[in-house]
Amino acid sequence: MKTIRTFDELLERRYGKIGTSKRTEFEINAKAFAIGEIIKEERRLANMTQDELAEKTGTKKSFISRIENGHSDIQLSTLFKLLELGLGRKVSLIIE
Rank of each mutant, 00 (worst) to 15 (best):
G70L: 12
F63I: 07
L53Y: 07
K40E: 04
E41R: 15
R66A: 10
K61Y: 03
I38E: 09
G58H: 05
K61R: 15
S62M: 09
R66M: 11
T59Y: 14
S62H: 11
E55T: 08
H71E: 12
T59M: 11
L53V: 08
S72V: 04
M48E: 13
T59H: 12
S65V: 05
S65G: 07
L53R: 02
N69T: 15
T59Q: 01
R43P: 04
H71R: 15
Q50I: 01
L45M: 10
E41Y: 07
R44N: 08
I39A: 03
R43D: 02
K56H: 08
I39M: 05
T49A: 11
N69C: 11
F63S: 10
N69R: 13
I38N: 12
K40V: 00
F63L: 06
A54R: 07
A46V: 00
E41N: 14
E42S: 11
E55L: 10
R66L: 06
K60V: 05
T57Q: 09
I64G: 01
K60A: 14
E55N: 14
I39F: 04
A54Q: 06
K60D: 10
N47Q: 04
E42I: 03
N69Y: 01
D51M: 06
R66H: 11
S62I: 10
E41F: 09
G70A: 15
S72G: 00
E41H: 13
M48A: 05
E68L: 06
T59V: 02
R44C: 00
L45Y: 01
R43K: 05
D51F: 09
R44D: 03
I38W: 00
G58P: 07
D51K: 12
T57A: 09
H71G: 12
I64E: 01
I39N: 01
S62L: 08
H71K: 14
L45N: 14
I38P: 05
I39C: 05
I38R: 15
T59R: 09
K40G: 03
I38T: 10
R66W: 02
E52S: 13
L45A: 13
R44W: 03
S72E: 12
G58I: 12
I67W: 01
E68C: 10
M48T: 10
E52T: 08
E68T: 03
E52N: 05
E42C: 13
A46D: 08
K60I: 01
K61L: 11
